[in-house]
Amino acid sequence: MSLGFALALIGAALATALAGSGSAWGVGVAGQAAAGVVSEDPGQFAKVLILQLLPGTQGIYGLLVTFIALSKIGLLSGSPATSMDLGTGLAVFAACLPIAIVGLISAYHQGRTSVASIGLVAKNPDQFGKAMLFPAMVETYAILSLLVSILAISNISL
């Protein structure tokens, strides 16, 4: 196995590992807040559940990029490009970084914003629409990084 192939594989793994870790943290803290609200006001379950799930998307984006990267290097089709040159491997690795890094950081902040929004819904259930927008704004940057990662990987020629 070439160093280039190993680098590409590490990049693919990082996309899921970092973005997934951020999502796990974000969904976890938002879940604690959601449980706190539901323990007092069970009627808010559906609203706070949606807010809890918002930081979970980065993990899905990371998984998507990992699939695309694995497909690119031939692992999913059963013919891995084990002799990939260093430059190409490094390019795949770099292409995975946007969603890995931005996914991690945006999920962390989206989790915190979701906690704050859950607090807002707890006090003013009528403000759910507005409360949704705050964490959703953080999502923008995760989507941008997802697009960059997908475009970059798709345009690398082996």
């Binding site: 803290v29 604690q32 807040a33 959601a34 449980a35 706190g36 609200v37 323990s39 007092e40 006001d41 808010q44 906690v115 859950i118 607090g119 707890a122 006090k123 003013n124």
Partner: peptide
């Protein structure tokens, strides 16, 4: 501080009363 997330959310739900 992160251990207070549940407690604070519970408090926020009670504040409306």
């Amino acid at each position: 501080n992160s251990d207070y997330i549940f407690a604070v959310a519970r408090i926020r739900a009670r504040e409306k009363w």
